[in-house]
Simulated assay, not measured.
Amino acid sequence: MRLTVDHTTTYTYERGASYALLQVRKRPQNLPSQSILSWDLALDGARKEVSYSDHHGNLVDLVSLDPGAERVAITYRGEVETHDTAGVSGAHNQLIPLWLYERATKLTSAGKEIRALAGRFPDASPKDVNVLHDLMAAIGDAIAYETDTTDAETDAEEALKQGRGVCQDHAHVFIATARLLGFPTRYVSGYLMMMDRIEQEAGHAWAEAWVDGLGWTGFDVSNKICPDARYIRVATGLDYRDAAPVRGLLYGAERENLVVSIQVQQ
């Protein structure tokens, strides 16, 4: 399947920043599930300083904002040929070891609720992918998809306890629980072509677990499926913070307003 993506992030300020430096993770790379045909960056009110690969293997553009700019737009446009691999990404090709992905973070720490969920799978084995499918279904039933009920700082335990959240929360709960069950697991950010719309307000997120004999395998709790040809993978990490589309430093700005526009279509 050939997909096109148009992703613009626009910041406006009452007074522009005196200094700002952003790490932008919106650039996908060639993988068994996708071939990048084109991917271009356009900046207004900012400039690219350098591009590099981070410790998770993500492609990062380091962008500085023009001092005093009251409007900044970061736009990526690209075309990707996707391939349905039934969610299997395969081998671990990163420098960091697999056991790192068993480490809990602030957003994926296991509390009472997560441990109770993990307790429903007492016979889990690192080779049993069916356990992960069952876990995906259980989390989908436990957490209703509702926007504006959580934010970027909501952790897995809190999301499971309140029973509402979005794809980021689904992924964090899956990661926290799967790690307790002995699976190295990571967060994935990217794009999903939706069947009922082209315009989207945000990117998508899911999780990948390492299964002995299969390798990295994706699970999208929000849609209760493994990623197919409608998905484009962009960045991975221990949790959202490692794979966030934009992170950085901002000094001197006043009253920031953020607008995100995403179009994904065949």
Results as ranks from 00 to 15, higher is better:
residue 54 D to N: 11
residue 54 D to P: 07
residue 54 D to G: 10
residue 55 H to Y: 13
residue 55 H to S: 14
residue 56 H to V: 08
residue 56 H to Q: 03
residue 57 G to K: 08
residue 58 N to H: 09
residue 58 N to W: 11
residue 58 N to E: 07
residue 59 L to Y: 13
residue 59 L to Q: 14
residue 59 L to P: 02
residue 62 L to Y: 06
residue 63 V to R: 06
residue 64 S to M: 15
residue 64 S to P: 01
residue 65 L to M: 11
residue 66 D to C: 04
residue 66 D to A: 08
residue 67 P to M: 03
residue 68 G to P: 07
residue 69 A to H: 03
residue 71 R to W: 02
residue 71 R to D: 02
residue 72 V to Y: 03
residue 72 V to C: 02
residue 72 V to Q: 00
residue 73 A to P: 09
residue 74 I to R: 13
residue 75 T to A: 15
residue 77 R to W: 04
residue 78 G to V: 11
residue 79 E to L: 01
residue 79 E to C: 00
residue 80 V to N: 12
residue 82 T to M: 12
residue 84 D to W: 14
residue 85 T to C: 14
residue 90 G to I: 11
residue 91 A to R: 15
residue 91 A to N: 11
residue 94 Q to Y: 01
residue 96 I to R: 10
residue 96 I to P: 02
residue 97 P to F: 01
residue 98 L to I: 03
residue 98 L to Q: 02
residue 99 W to T: 15
residue 99 W to Q: 12
residue 100 L to D: 12
residue 101 Y to E: 12
residue 102 E to W: 09
residue 103 R to Q: 13
residue 103 R to K: 13
residue 103 R to T: 09
residue 103 R to Y: 05
residue 104 A to M: 14
residue 105 T to D: 00
residue 106 K to I: 05
residue 107 L to T: 07
residue 108 T to I: 11
residue 109 S to D: 08
residue 109 S to R: 12
residue 110 A to R: 13
residue 112 K to N: 12
residue 113 E to V: 13
residue 115 R to K: 15
residue 116 A to L: 09
residue 117 L to N: 08
residue 117 L to W: 11
residue 120 R to P: 00
residue 121 F to P: 11
residue 122 P to Q: 02
residue 122 P to T: 02
residue 123 D to L: 05
residue 123 D to F: 07
residue 123 D to V: 00
residue 124 A to S: 09
residue 125 S to R: 07
residue 127 K to F: 03
residue 127 K to H: 06
residue 127 K to N: 06
residue 127 K to G: 03
residue 127 K to P: 00
residue 128 D to W: 02
residue 129 V to W: 02
residue 129 V to D: 07
residue 134 D to I: 03
residue 134 D to H: 09
residue 135 L to Q: 01
residue 135 L to V: 04
residue 136 M to Q: 05
residue 136 M to G: 00
residue 138 A to K: 07
residue 138 A to I: 03
residue 139 I to K: 06
residue 140 G to C: 03
residue 141 D to Y: 05
residue 142 A to M: 05
residue 143 I to H: 02
residue 143 I to V: 14
residue 144 A to V: 06
residue 148 D to G: 01
residue 148 D to N: 03
residue 149 T to V: 10
residue 149 T to I: 00
residue 149 T to S: 06
residue 149 T to C: 07
residue 150 T to A: 00
residue 151 D to E: 12
residue 152 A to S: 04
residue 154 T to A: 02
residue 156 A to W: 07
residue 157 E to G: 15
residue 158 E to G: 06
residue 159 A to T: 06
residue 159 A to E: 09
residue 160 L to S: 08
residue 163 G to H: 10
residue 163 G to N: 08
residue 164 R to Y: 08
residue 165 G to K: 02
residue 167 C to M: 03
